[in-house]
Computed example of a mutant assay.
Amino acid sequence: MFEQPVIDERIATIAPGFRAMSVLVDATAASQCALDPDILGDACAVVSAGGPAWAESHLASWAQAYQRFGAKPNRTPCSAQALRKRVLRDGRLPVINPVVDLYNAVSLRYAIPVGGENADAYAGHPFLTIADGTEAFDTVMNGEAVIENPEAGEVIWRDEVGVTCRRWNWRQGTRTRLEHASGRMWFVLESLDTMPEEALRGATAMLVDGLADLMPGSTIVATRVALSSASNWRKLYMAASLGA
């Protein structure tokens, strides 16, 4: 059973109004179909036309949140801002694989960070928390596998083994990277209060519907993620830290 995400209550001081949707997919017995070939191009067209209406205010709020934990959003922007900049510069995004193309399309169309992970590679709860600087982050540099450490005070996603995404949703690690439309997958959509609530619901529906079309017969569960109480997240986080 995949553990539900745990949100450190300290995140509220960095990003007031933070909201997230967790989408768990079990595609172990699913069929495979092709992704709508227009879905990514259509999303790029929305961005090129200046949409969605809340994009600028929402991404500005993300930049402010990054600054609050010491990141430089011009150098390491949130994932939604990075995708949007590429489309505004190049007019399109390259095709990667159907699952990544789908959640990139959702991110672009709704100006929201969307992450996709291999749930079978996760150990325990996904934690959105604040790094102490000793956590391990597996990545690639100059074609070589390396282990980095986040900066102390940096917002990270992690599990019982180490960091799965640095600087909130800026860069994913290699250990839990999602590369195939098979097995168990976990997606998270992250929004701030400058994004309309109905837009968050729309983004979630677009992702869930797209996953159902891509992998018929899969089991998909979408859940709202709330901040954990101080005692709850500390208990779970300490257990994860001791197990790492």
Results as ranks from 00 to 15, higher is better:
Trp157Ala: 00
Asp159Pro: 02
Val161Pro: 02
Trp157Asp: 04
Val155Cys: 09
Arg177Tyr: 10
Trp157His: 00
Glu148Asp: 12
Trp168Ala: 15
Gln172Ser: 10
Gly153Tyr: 00
Val163Asn: 02
Thr174Trp: 03
Gly162Asp: 05
Ser182Arg: 15
Trp157Thr: 02
Thr176Ala: 15
Glu154Gln: 11
Asn169Val: 13
Thr176Ile: 12
Arg177Gly: 11
Trp168His: 12
Ile147His: 07
Val155Ser: 02
Thr176Ser: 14
Ile156Thr: 00
Glu154Asn: 04
Ser182Tyr: 10
Arg171His: 11
Thr164Ala: 04
Asn169His: 10
Cys165Asn: 13
Val155Tyr: 04
Thr164Phe: 02
Trp157Tyr: 06
Arg175Tyr: 09
Leu178Lys: 12
Val146Ala: 01
Val146Ser: 01
Trp170Cys: 15
Ile156Gly: 00
Thr164Trp: 02
Pro150Ile: 05
Leu178Phe: 13
Arg158Cys: 08
Thr174Ser: 14
Pro150Arg: 02
His180Val: 15
Arg175Gln: 13
Trp168Asn: 09
Arg166Glu: 11
Arg166Lys: 12
Glu148Thr: 07
Trp157Lys: 00
Ile156Pro: 01
Arg167Met: 08
Asn169Ile: 09
Leu178Ser: 10
Trp168Gln: 09
Asn149Ile: 06
Arg166Thr: 12
Gly173Ile: 08
Arg177Ala: 15
Ser182His: 13
Pro150Leu: 04
Asp159Glu: 01
His180Ala: 14
Arg177Val: 09
Thr174His: 07
Ala181Met: 12
His180Tyr: 13
Gly173Phe: 08
Arg167Ile: 10
Trp170Lys: 08
Pro150Val: 05
His180Cys: 12
Ala181Ser: 15
Val146Thr: 03
Pro150His: 03
Val155Thr: 06
Val155Phe: 02
Val161His: 07
Gly162Glu: 05
Val155Trp: 05
Arg167Tyr: 02
Thr176Asn: 13
Arg175Met: 13
Glu154Cys: 02
Arg158Tyr: 01
Val161Tyr: 06
Ala181Phe: 12
Val155Gly: 03
Gly162Arg: 01
Gly153Cys: 03
Ala181Lys: 09
Trp157Gln: 01
Thr176His: 09
Gln172Arg: 12
Ala152Glu: 05
Asn149Met: 08
Ala181Ile: 10
Thr176Gly: 11
Ala145Trp: 03
Glu160Phe: 04
Arg177Asp: 10
Thr164Arg: 04
Gly153Thr: 04
Trp168Cys: 15
Ala152Thr: 05
Glu179Thr: 13
Trp157Arg: 03
Ala152Asp: 01
Arg158Lys: 07
Ile147Asp: 06
Ser182Cys: 14
Trp168Arg: 11
Thr176Cys: 15
Ile156Ala: 01
Arg171Ile: 11
Gly162Val: 03
Val163Cys: 05
Glu179Tyr: 09
Val146Lys: 02
Pro150Asp: 05
Asp159Phe: 02
Gln172Val: 01
Ile156Cys: 03
Thr164Gly: 07
Trp170Thr: 11
Val161Trp: 01
Glu148Ala: 10
Gly162Cys: 03
Gln172Trp: 05
Trp170Arg: 11
Gln172Asp: 08
Arg171Pro: 03
Ser182Glu: 14
Ser182Trp: 10
